[in-house]
Nucleic acid binder design. Structure first.
Lengths: 337, 337
DNA sequence: GCACACTCTGCAATCGCTTGCAGCGCAACG
DNA sequence: CGTTGCGCTGCAAGCGATTGCAGAGTGTGC
């Protein structure tokens, strides 16, 4: 039933080699032979068997993406960009979801390693040694994480946090809280350190670190009461989901955003514009991150000898919406000052 | 660098055949030989080359999923379920995003067909003939769509719409609008027909069809003014995203949900619980849909002769949140009745 | 007219694995 | 002790493509 190069060869009256060449190196074959072969191939609906091809060439024409959670809009957007770019390069895309389990990462990578030309590993949670090990299994690009000289794509977390804090300060906030993400998260470490370093440059502003929370809505709801108790008038969340959780938790306690509390998220996932109030957030070019990762990977595959690329600190841009407002001068339980 | 069966054979002092058998049919090999081979294989970090294996067995160990939009939380959840189930069966997962372009569907399927044992095609928009054609390319399972005797997984749209409308009627609403999805959408056709048929059973309730809209938030915002003009006191949206758009559009016009208008979505995507007010929605078991699709596909692959499976009308359950309320007896601009 | 160069095509080896078949050794049986 | 049967292993033939090499055919230059 499936049509092979032999069939095309027979019908076109040439050898299999010629069929192969007509498809892969058209210039090596006489024009009229080429068109005849290609016509027959098209007519028969011939598609080369990728397994056979990959067996001999060593290349698969596939690349893969490993993320912690496909349902998380942050990774969903990256995945979208990844697939679109992969397709434009002619690559098919494998996907894997580690379910936030660091132990699953190396297993997924190993399973995929042999059938891809390279992998993108997104926000891996595992230790450095493990990541270095995976990089040995197959060409690897890290997103939101660095590890030795493994290729990377990262966003400018520091500048993002800076933009958010400068903006909150401009609104008059002088006590700003940070609701962190997972303790083991590389992004969280970066954001937290940016939070501290920006704060250190503004002695008139007090910082409050609320702690480490799950990177989901539940993390934010858990942090909400701590935020209220902290006395801060504004908060920066590890990401938008945590910010949503804060929003929800605050609402339950009757704390009105942005009147009583300003809230800033990070990532600007698509739903952030839909919430009410709209969430002010540090806009990350999510789809571009996916694209950039593919570009980096393709560059590696095409020239394996080149030094690892590092597309570091992709620019971010604060998107101001309804969750931030000037600090109220009167206490929260009174009317507007 | 990569270790092949030959390497394992040499080290273990056996032939390649024995290595192969030790891995694929352990019972055919003497216990001590088997353990020796397996130990050596593990020690060398041997993993069989999937291309070589697939070349001869005809099976790839991969399955694929084609969706219209990975960023849409609806499909993201299905994708998550798909991947989890695939992995539990030992399959690796290809993913493809048609970007809502019906013409892309057959192309993506064709590109993937040779390297998967089967594909799941989610909410395809293309015409029947094209879908039937794809089903010829490789084992296919349709989600949210039927086509001849191609295997399918569908949810009980009719009952979902019925639950929503019965609930709205119980709240006193007697003029109910439907903001439809894309004209070519099979799901929309089903939901619309359910809307009509349920309405027909309740002569005291007037139905208003607002028209066809894009299945995104933008579709809902576009429909909002039509909804206001319709005189309806409650609306059912094609899906949650459209409902969000309605919510936003109504808010802009000062129409308060649920006080002035009750809103019900369909799908109950994860973010629906986070919105404010929380969106009442027909809960679809999204992750289960992904799982069910994989189960169906695996059954097909294991027994290609069996008749196509149809997991039709997976049960749905209305989830009531804050976007629905009893109909106000006084006009909207007055205080509560 | 001959040699040489060049273009195009086919032969055959090869990628790494699976699998039918044959062969070997051993135990049981007659 | 010879035969049979069985359990285990190796041989070798593929799977469907790619590709180095050789050879056929044509054209060019001398």
């Amino acid at each position: 039933m499936p049509v092979s190069a032999r069939d095309v060869a027979r019908v076109a009256g040439v050898s299999v080699s010629t069929v192969s060449r007509a498809l892969t190196r058209p210039d090596d074959v006489a024009p009229e032979t080429r068109t005849r072969v290609l016509d027959v191939a098209r007519g028969l609906g011939y598609l080369p068997n990728p397994a056979a091809r990959s067996l001999i060439t060593g290349r698969t024409g596939n690349i893969g993406l490993v993320v912690p959670d496909l349902e998380n809009p942050f990774f969903a957007s990256i995945t979208k960009g990844f697939h679109a770019r992969a397709r434009s390069f002619g690559y098919a895309a494998f996907i894997a979801d580690s379910d936030e389990d660091p132990a699953a990462e190396p297993e997924l990578v190993r399973n995929l390693a042999k059938q891809v030309d390279g992998l993108v590993l997104c926000s891996p949670r595992g230790p450095e040694e493990v990541i270095a090990g995976m990089a040995r299994d197959c060409p690897l690009v890290l997103v939101n994480r660095t590890c030795g000289d493994v290729a990377t794509v990262t966003v400018d977390d520091h500048d993002g946090v800076r933009q958010a804090m400068v903006y909150l300060q401009a609104l008059g906030h002088r006590r700003i809280a940070f609701a962190g993400g997972p303790r083991a998260s590389w992004s969280n470490a970066r954001r937290l350190s940016a939070f501290r370093s920006v704060g250190a440059q503004h002695p008139d502003t007090e910082l409050v670190e609320l702690g480490f929370f799950s990177p989901h809505v539940s993390g934010g709801t858990a942090a909400a009461d701590l935020l209220i108790a902290s006395g801060a008038t504004a908060a920066l969340a590890y990401n938008d989901l945590v910010a949503f959780g804060l929003l929800e938790g605050l609402r339950r306690r009757g704390v009105v955003v942005p009147r009583d509390m300003s809230l800033v998220g990070i990532d600007d996932i698509p739903m952030s514009g839909l919430a009410h109030p709209g969430l002010t957030s540090v806009g990350t070019p999510l789809v571009n991150v996916g694209r950039a990762a593919v570009d980096t990977l393709v560059a590696m595959v095409r020239d394996p000898t080149a030094p690892a690329l590092h597309q570091d600190d992709l620019p971010v841009q604060l998107v101001v919406r309804g969750s931030t407002a000037p600090r109220r001068t009167a206490p929260a339980h009174a009317g507007p000052g």
